[in-house]
């Protein structure tokens, strides 16, 4: 087959392009298949549907606390006494590791709502039951590594780096909150 070298070269170029693009397309296909296999481990539709919880606080007396489950984690709700509210508000921010004003953590000062998971390594702090150790600052105390939280759930002493997390929630009425 007589061919001049120029057309042969361009043919080879076309040939290589065809082969490279074939394997590239195949590779893209293989990569696309990975996504469903990875995404199936993300929360499923039924799990996401349970991502919010409503809590009725009307029976919660002053000084009492309840723990509710939200997204598989404990959420602390405490009905604070005027004394506790005063203590939470008057602390100077300079004394804190993670300075936050009480007003910024509670939309309704009577109720403090916290994710009950220590920000250190994920243990559940004590302080919900009346007989519990509440720590030096009267809030919560994590027994695992000794973190002390105050009446606003702020870290005051111990290894935890940040304050107890406030979940996103809103008051649907005076006594009902919706968490999540």
């Amino acid at each position: 087959m007589p061919k001049n070298s120029k057309s042969k070269n361009s043919n080879e170029g076309k040939r290589d392009f065809l082969i490279v693009s074939t394997y590239t397309i195949a590779g893209i296909g293989a990569a696309a298949v990975a996504w469903p296999l990875i995404d199936q481990m993300n929360p499923a539709a039924d799990t996401l549907a349970l991502a919010s919880t409503e809590v009725d606080l009307s029976s919660l007396e002053e000084g009492q606390a309840i723990t509710v489950t939200w997204r598989g984690k404990p959420v602390f709700v405490r009905h604070r006494t005027p004394e506790e509210i005063k203590l939470a508000k008057q602390v100077s921010l300079d004394d804190m590791r993670h300075p936050e004003r009480d007003e910024d953590r509670v939309p309704n000062e009577k109720y403090i709502v916290l994710v009950g998971v220590c920000t250190h390594l994920g243990c559940v702090p004590l302080g919900q039951k009346s007989g519990d150790v509440k720590g030096q600052y009267g809030g919560w105390f994590c027994p695992c590594h000794g973190s002390h939280y105050d009446h606003s759930g702020r870290i005051r002493k111990g290894p935890a780096p940040t304050n107890l997390e406030v979940p996103s929630y809103k008051f649907l009425s005076d006594n009902v909150i919706k968490i999540g």
Partner: peptide, 8 residues
């Protein structure tokens, strides 16, 4: 992909 791989 079938067409490409066939010609390749």
């Amino acid at each position: 992909l079938t067409a490409l791989s066939y010609f390749a």
